[in-house]
Each structure stands twice: as C-alpha cells, then as structure tokens.
C-alpha cells in the first residue's frame, strides 16, 4: 500500500468534513430558528471533530511533522482534496438542507463501510463518525420532508436546492486515483450507489419532491480543482493562522 496514496485518501476525507463543517458554522447567528442554530452548530462541531481525527492520522502517515492545524490552515485551495459539493455556499435554509441530505445519505453508509474495513486506525474514527452521521442524515431527511411537503414557498426552495446541487453527487461514487491505488484499503464508492439511490428516493417520495433529472456532473474536487467558492471560504477560515502563524488562543 502506497503511503502517499493513503495520505491523500485520508486527507481528502478530512477536507470533506472540514469544508462542510466550516460551511455549517457560517449559519451561527443566522439560523431561522434558535433550535436550528444549535442543531447546525452541533453538526458542524461533529464534522470538525471528525476532520481533526483524520488530519492527525494523515499527519502521522505523511511523517513530515505537519499537525492538524498545519494541514487545515496551511494549505491553499489547490491543496484541498474535498468533494466540490461540500464547499458550495449555504444559500437559503432549503439549499443547506439539500446539501445535508445528499451528503448525509452517502456518509451514513460510507462510515460503517470504512469501520468494517481492515484499516484499524481509520475504522476507529469511522465507528464514532457513523453514529454522528446517522443523526445528521435523520435531521436532514426530516427537514426535507417538512420543507418539501410544507408551504408553496418552502417546497420551491427545497426543490431548487436539490436541483442546484444534484450535479455534485456524481462524484460521490467515483474512485479517486488514490482510492483506486489502495484497492481494498479504500471504501468501494460505486458499491454505495444503490443504497444512496434508494434512501434519496424514499425521502423525496415522502417530501413529494421531484428527483432532479440526471444531467452533466461536476468534477469531484479530489484532484484539487474546485469551484470558485472554496478559495474565498479558505481565505476567511485561514486568515488568523496566515496572519499569525502558530497563533494559539
């Protein structure tokens, strides 16, 4: 097993959780309800916690002395290997819930698959993340049903969010070059597709929403090529460490 491929594989997983966690943290102070303010912040903290564990593991694999902060705050946009969906702006609450649903339905199966893999270090992180992801998915699915089967306005926004983000879901089921190089050491993404399709189908049926039609799919982001939204997000997220390297609270 190539250490370089494993490093980039773990780093990509860490970047996934950090970008989405940071996006969700941007709701703080802006959420439509106090209850959702806390719910989104809880989910953001779960994701950032997952990212920290993965960055620590990645830093150890790399063996170049980079810790979690160096990996999170010391790399530029092209160094981030996250899926493009997760860097997309929050938009309105319907769009944020759409992003949570699409990604949540993936991760509630991805983490258990990783937990069952032979990689003990990753399995330990995945086992904890699986419980968190199960709740994240439930939260998103219940909101999707309430918004989709709610008022004309909530339905319009929920459908619009799904339609706008659908093109980023093709990447869920693509094996990156690093994942392919790891063989059985990485989760088989194409194998997750039937379960994801079925879960999304069930939620959309309950929500009386339309499944967006399959169209062009965006690139994954795993090669460091991103949409125009990641760079400004990183600029904001990293400014303290960029301005005062090594700063601690």
């Amino acid at each position: 097993m190539s250490a370089a491929a494993r490093f980039r594989y773990v780093l990509g997983l860490a970047d996934d959780q950090l970008t989405l966690g940071h996006r969700l943290s941007q709701w703080t102070g802006r959420a439509p309800l106090l209850e959702e303010e806390l719910a989104l912040a809880n989910i953001a903290l779960d994701l950032i916690g997952q990212a920290r564990a993965l960055y620590q593991l990645a830093g150890g694999i790399e063996g170049a002395g980079r810790d979690e902060d160096a990996l999170a705050y010391g790399r530029d946009e092209r160094g981030f290997l996250n899926l493009q969906l997760l860097e997309q702006p929050n938009g309105d609450f319907g769009r944020t819930i759409a992003r949570q649903l699409l990604y949540g339905a993936l991760m509630r199966d991805y983490w258990p698959a990783l937990a069952a893999s032979g990689d003990a270090a990753l399995a330990a992180i995945a086992g904890k993340a699986a419980k968190e992801a199960a709740y994240h998915y439930r939260h998103a699915a219940e909101w999707t049903v309430r918004l989709g089967d709610g008022t004309a306005e909530s339905r319009r926004r929920m459908q619009a969010g799904l339609d706008e983000l659908w093109e980023y879901t093709g990447a869920f089921f693509e094996m990156s070059a690093d994942e392919a190089a790891l063989g059985d050491g990485a989760v088989d993404r194409p194998g997750l597709r039937p379960g994801w399709d079925a879960a999304i189908g069930r939620v959309l049926a309950r929500a009386t929403l339309m499944r967006p039609s399959a169209t062009w799919m965006a690139a994954s982001g795993r090669d460091g090529v991103h949409s125009e939204h990641l760079e400004p997000m990183l600029a904001e997220m990293q400014i303290l460490q960029r301005s005062y390297p090594g700063l601690t609270w």
């Binding site: 209850e35 959702e36 439930r138 309430r146």
Partner: peptide, 13 residues
C-alpha cells in the same frame, strides 16, 4: 413543527 421534529430539536438543544 410536529412531534418528530420536536424530539430532534430537544436532542440538539
């Protein structure tokens, strides 16, 4: 909005 959502919110709050 309803009982199921109240349970989720109670868990989070």
């Amino acid at each position: 909005a309803d009982a199921a959502m109240a349970l989720l919110a109670a868990r989070d709050v």
